[in-house]
């Protein structure tokens, strides 16, 4: 009914956090560059802000497509009060809220858990030595 509202709220919070963290990381990198002088040749690892944007992108992508699905089924309308259940009495509102608490929260949790797994896997990949190009056979 309106389950996408929960991951949508998480998307707003995560995007704001990612933007702030990106600014902080950029400032820190500039300060380090000023103190160290020339940059080193060491490979640059993916910053946490960029990884946080992965979560924001996953959430926003899902929320946009799910909002379209809800529009398709007539559960969301493009005018006030936007949620059809809000005009159908307290029983429908209660059902909508219970769906948000169950389905919506689980959606947000599952996306976040998968993102955590992605961050762990990406950290492991970054530690791995770069693959060597196969030598041409003689």
């Amino acid at each position: 009914m309106a389950c996408f509202v929960v991951p949508g709220t998480e998307a707003i919070v995560v995007t704001a956090a990612a933007v702030l963290l990106k600014k902080y990381e950029q400032n820190r990198a500039q300060m380090k560059l000023h103190s160290d002088g020339a940059s080193t040749e060491a490979p640059v690892r993916t910053g946490f802000a960029r990884k946080l944007f992965w979560l924001a992108d996953l959430l926003w992508g899902g929320v946009i497509l799910l909002a379209f699905e809800h529009l398709w089924h007539g559960e969301v309308v493009p005018f006030f009060p936007f949620l059809t259940a809000a005009t159908e009495g307290p029983e429908a509102v209660s059902e909508m809220l219970s769906e948000m608490v169950s389905v919506g929260v689980l959606m947000a949790v599952l996306v976040t858990v998968i993102w955590v797994a992605m961050v762990l896997v990406s950290a492991a990949i970054e530690k791995r030595p770069a693959p060597q190009k196969a030598e041409a056979s003689v």
Binding site: C3, F4, P7, W54, D57, L58, L59, W60, G61, G62, V63, I64, L65, L66, V103, L106, M107, L110, V111, I114
Partner: peptide, 14 residues
């Protein structure tokens, strides 16, 4: 990719 995967995970829960 993000859009499709995000929607897939959410529809999986559904």
């Amino acid at each position: 990719c993000w859009m499709f995967w995000g929607a897939s995970i959410m529809w999986l829960v559904d």
